[in-house]
Every structure is written in C-alpha cells, then in structure tokens.
Design a protein around this nucleic acid. Sequence first.
DNA 1: GCGAACTTTGAGCGAACGCTCCAAGTTGTG
DNA 2: CACAACTTGGAGCGTTCGCTCAAAGTTCGC
Lengths: 194, 194
Amino acid sequence: MARYRVGMETRARILEATRDVLGEQGLESATLKAITDRAGVGAGSFYNLFESKEAAVWEVLAEAITAVDPDPDGHGTETVDDLIAAFVAFVTGETATLARIHLQLAGIALTEPEVAAPIARSHARRVERFAAAMQRDDPDVDDASAAGHAEVLLGALTGLAMRTVMARDFDLAAAAAGLPRHPSAAAPAVGHRS
Amino acid sequence: MARYRVGMETRARILEATRDVLGEQGLESATLKAITDRAGVGAGSFYNLFESKEAAVWEVLAEAITAVDPDPDGHGTETVDDLIAAFVAFVTGETATLARIHLQLAGIALTEPEVAAPIARSHARRVERFAAAMQRDDPDVDDASAAGHAEVLLGALTGLAMRTVMARDFDLAAAAAGLPRHPSAAAPAVGHRS
DNA sequence: GCGAACTTTGAGCGAACGCTCCAAGTTGTG
DNA sequence: CACAACTTGGAGCGTTCGCTCAAAGTTCGC
C-alpha cells in the first residue's frame, strides 16, 4: 500500500505508535484517535497505509507473539540457561514494550479465538525448544517429563515476568536463576500425600 | 439501591449476565447492551440498580480476584497439596467462569492501575499462604526460599490453568500433581553456569 | 386495599467510535 | 520539468457507546 519512501516511514511511525499505545494503555485504549494522535498523522494517512485499525493492531500483536522466541530456527545448541537468559532479555531489554504486550496476549487469547490459535502454536514451539534443551543438558530425561517440566518452567517464567513488569524493582534475572532447570528436581509425580 | 425482593433478584440476574459475558467474551465485549440483553432487562432497570456499567463489571472482577483464595481467614493448617487442590477446584469446578475472568485479570492489570492494586495485594496474600504451608510441611525451609518457591509454584499453576481453560481436555489435576512442592528441589540459586 | 416506595421499559441524548472522501500538496520517473 | 502516482489532513458519515428520563406498572407496610 505504501510505495514511496515517505509512505514507508509514516507506516513505521504508525506501527511504533500502535506498539506504544498497546503496551502502555492496552488493547481497549488503542483507538484510531489514540494511535494517529501519537503518530502525528491524520486518519486519512492511516487508511492510505492500512486496511483497517485491526490490521495495524494485528501486525503488532503478531510481532509480540513472535518476538518472545528469538532465533526461531536456531541450530539446536542452546542450553536451558540460554533460553532463560533470552527470555529475561526479552522482558527487560529493548523489547520491553513488546514484552508488555506479550503478557497481555494470553488473557486476550481466552476470548479471541483469532489470537488464541497463533498463541497456542507459539507456546507449543517454545515448550519443544525448552524440552529439547533440557534433554541436551541431561540425556537421561525422558520426553514426557521434559515436556512437563518445560511447561512448569514457562509458566513460572511468565508469572515472574508479570511481577517484573508490574513492579519495576523486581529482579527477574535473579528470580529466574533460582528456577529448577531439571525435571528430576520435581516432586515425585506419584505416591505423594493423597 | 434495590430494596424490594424483585429488585434484588434482578440485580443478581444482571451480575450473573455480567459474569457470563466477561467469562465468554471478555472485557471489551462487555457492553451495556450485551449485559442487559443477556439478563433480559432494559437499560433503565440496569441503572436503577447500578451506579454505572463500570460498577457492575467491577463487582464481578472483584469477585474473580477474591474467589481464587477460598477460606481467606483459614486456620493456618492447610498443606501445599490442599492449596493446589483448592486452585484446581477453582479452575475446573463450578467457579470455572470466575476462573476464566481471573486469568484475564493479570493482563488487564498491566494497563489498568485500579485493577493492578487489588491483584497485587491478592497475589502477595497467596504467596504468603503457600510459603507458610511449605514451611509447615518442611520446617527446615527458610523464609526467602519458601517465598521464592511459592512464586514459582503460583506462576506454574497459572500457566497450567491457562492451558486448561484453552484446551478443555488438558488434565490440570494430573499436571499439578507433578509440580515441585519444595524449594529444596530447586536448582542451586548460586554457582550455576554463568 | 390504599398509597408511598420501588421497579420497569425503550426512545432518544450527546459523545466517541471506525472509517470515507477529496482537495491540496509531495514524490519520483521518463 | 511535466505529469502520474502517491501521500496528507480533517470534515463529516453512519453506527454504537454509556446513560437519562418520563410514564406506567408492581410491591408491600400500614
């Protein structure tokens, strides 16, 4: 839709504004006026460059889904620590705004099937990646408990990220360092107190 | 605002409708029309019983925040297993709709300070409860690692609950049974790979 | 069973929403 | 440098939003 240089630049400014509004004020506050005011652009310019408001929002949401998993076609050599460090960087680094949006997405997915599908795919991919790294670290771990512990680790990381974003002085890196890396550390799955 | 019996009943129907709409369609779709249509009530009746749309929504959100912690002034005798079982019941039992709303709340809290405050308070209370139960189960556990592991456990439970709500065939009880109950099971907090 | 208190409905208000349209200006190509 | 292609802003469209209000009906203590 944009062919000239100025158009491309305006498009980028609009996406940046959309990102900021979504991150700071949430999906409900991401009105056309909020976005175009922030981008310093008229409604006409917006619709010259995007099909609809939804299209711009969706482009940013997709970015927030993707960005949590850097190097998605990695060489299969990362350790669990690497993956955790990458997540910590995603939440605390330059992508912090995208991380804020990412953390809103799970809640949104509960009531928006169109968001739920890619979120589910992304989650499955991350579980696979964590489980594979776990088995690389410790070849004795079987598939099922690796996947199960990956689920636990991801859940815990998300919970801690939430705290980080809401209380800026929370030290995510330190908290993440204390997470159990191996399923062997888990309590026995059977025979525990009824 | 309601003094007669019929008024009280209508009020309850409206709250039920609000709960259903929030659980099934989310905050953004919880318009006055959606709520009053579902409750089988005119707009005038709604405003005879509630200060504003926000007031009704907020009443349900507060309920969803509170309901995750049953018996909040408990006698301090529950085990970690009890607390986990209570959470599983919250998500899979009769309160499933409230649980769906509860899981949306964290994302909402990121951009709505009014929601963030009670959520943070509720979370702190739950961490305390889990940590206390942990120390009751194993008196050797110190305060810091109990609190830290409570955080991990709650994060993991929330993550698993999310999966349960999105994929109805997911067995939350079984997954929760595999969670590490004790901080002792965690990886060493210091000295791990740089 | 009277009457004050309460409940109910739905048309309609002003504001805000997403979006369209077009006249004027800018960009880039041959 | 001419001209088509693209970009721009903003007035204004139709719709939906939360909410009000007056008139008619219902409830319930006395």
